[in-house]
Simulated assay, not measured.
Amino acid sequence: MHPRRILFLISDSGGGHRAGAEAIAAALAERPDADAFEYRIEDALVQCRFPLSALNTGYHLALKYGPFVYGALYHATNGERRYRTLVESCNSLYRKALLRLMRSYNPDVIVSVHPLLNHVALRVRSELGSRAPIVTVITDLGRVHAGWIAPSADAIVVPSAEVRACAIERGVAPQKVHLLGHPVHPRFADYDESRAQIRERLGLPQDRKVVVLMAGGEGGGKLSRITDAIGTAGLKNAHVVVCTGRNETLKARLEETSGAFDVPMTVLGFTHEVPALMRAADLLVTKAGPGAIAEACVAAVPMIVYDYVPGQERGNIDHVRRTGIGEVTLSVNQTVRAVQRLLREPRQLERMSECERNIARPQASRQIADLVIGFAGIRQPQYAAAGR
C-alpha cells in the first residue's frame, strides 16, 4: 500500500499560513511512523486564475499602502452569506486549478490552513466524489472571520476557547471542534537551554534587562519608528535586540546608526533563533501576529503588542487583553511608556508570564499531527476529544 498522502492547502498572503503548515509538517516528520505517509504543502491560490493568483502580492501591497482599505474588505466579507457569495462568484477562478491539484496528488486527507481554501476544498471534493477528510486549522486567536468556519469540514482545530465557542455558535457540531492550540513549531516546546546559557551563546548581557523587538518575517510596519523611539528613551540597565526579518534596508540603517542610541542594541535580520531569543528576553515587543503571540506564551515571555492588521488581527489583540498575557499599545509613545514602566515592575512581568503558562499549548503541532494522522487512516488520533 502506498504511503498515505496529506495535502496542506495554504496561501502565502502573510507568513502565518505557511508557518502553521510547516509546524504541523515538522511534527509529522519526527514521528516514528513517518514512513507510513507523505505530505505536500501547496500555495493553492497562486495556481488559480487572476486575480486570485495575485492575492499574495495584493495582500502585501494593501497592508503597506492601504491597511484600512484591507480592513474594510475584511469586514465587508465577514458574514456567512456574504462569504458564501464570494466563494461561489470565484468558482471559475479556482475550480480548474484545484481539480488539477486534487487529481494529481489524490490526497487521503486535506488540511486547510487558510479561510478561503476551506470552502474551495469542500466544493472541489464534492465535484470529484472524493472521500478525503478535510481538516481546518484556524490560526487566529480571537473572534475569527466567517471564512474560517466551514461546518461541513470533518474537523476544525481551534487555538483558543473563544474560537471554539465562535465555531459552535456558527453551526459547527461540537464533536468536530478540537481545542488543540495554535500550531507552534515543535522546536519551541523542545528548547532546553537556560536563559543564562542562551545569553552567553548569543552574546547578550547577563546583567541587563533584554527587550526583543519584532514585526514578523517582513520587519515592516511600525518597527522602524518603535526601534528609534525605544533606542532614545533613556532605558536604564537594558539591552535591545531588534529582529528586522527580511527588511534589509532597516537592518542596514540600524547597524549604521545603532551607536547613536542611548541603549546597547543588537540588530538581527531574518533568524531561526527566535525560540532562543524569546527565552532570553525579559520583554517582547511585537505586532499581533497569532504565531508570535502563541510562541511567546510557550516561552512565557511577557509581551507588548503594538500593531495589528485591521480586521484580521483585531481578535488577537482582544485575546491578549482578555487573557492578561500582555499589554496592547497602539501608538509609538504608548509603547515606549509601557516598556519603561514594565521594566520597573518585575511583579507585573511575572503575572503576565504566569497567564501565558496557563494557556500555552507547547505540544499543539504534535497533537494536530496526531489528529491528521488519524483522519488519514493510519491510526486513531489520541487527541480527538472535542475541547481537550
Results as ranks from 00 to 15, higher is better:
Leu86Pro: 00
Leu9Trp: 12
Gly147Phe: 01
Ala150Asp: 02
Val336Leu: 05
Ile226Val: 06
Gln367Val: 04
Thr257Asn: 12
Glu256Val: 06
Gly311Lys: 01
Ile10Trp: 05
Asp12Val: 10
Val46Pro: 10
Met278Tyr: 03
Ile24Cys: 00
Leu73Val: 02
Gly326Arg: 04
Asp190Ala: 15
Pro381His: 00
Ala161Val: 12
Arg103Ala: 11
Leu223Gln: 07
Ile304Asp: 08
Val241Glu: 10
Thr271Tyr: 01
Asp282Ile: 06
Thr329Arg: 12
Ala376Arg: 05
Asp228Leu: 14
Ser224Lys: 13
Leu116Lys: 03
Arg225Ile: 05
Glu22Asp: 02
Gln334Cys: 11
Ala260Arg: 15
Ala34Tyr: 09
Ile110Cys: 00
Ala29Arg: 15
Met303Asp: 09
His178Arg: 15
Ile41Leu: 05
Phe375Ser: 02
Gly58Ile: 07
Thr57Glu: 14
Phe37Ala: 13
Lys222Glu: 06
Ala215Asp: 04
His178Leu: 15
Leu342Tyr: 01
Ile198Lys: 07
Leu93Asn: 11
Gly15Phe: 10
Lys96Pro: 00
Gly171Lys: 05
Ala25His: 03
Ala229Gln: 00
Ser13Thr: 10
Ala121Ile: 05
Arg388Met: 15
Asp307Asn: 07
Ile24Ser: 03
Ala173His: 13
Asp154Trp: 06
Leu73Ser: 04
Ala19Met: 01
Gln175His: 13
Ile198His: 06
Leu61Thr: 11
Val212Asp: 07
Lys209Asn: 13
Gly377Val: 05
Ile6Met: 12
Arg100Ala: 15
Phe50Thr: 14
Pro159Asp: 11
Ala161Phe: 10
Pro302Ser: 12
Pro264Tyr: 05
Cys48Leu: 09
Arg170Ala: 09
Gly58Val: 08
Ala280Thr: 08
Gly245Cys: 13
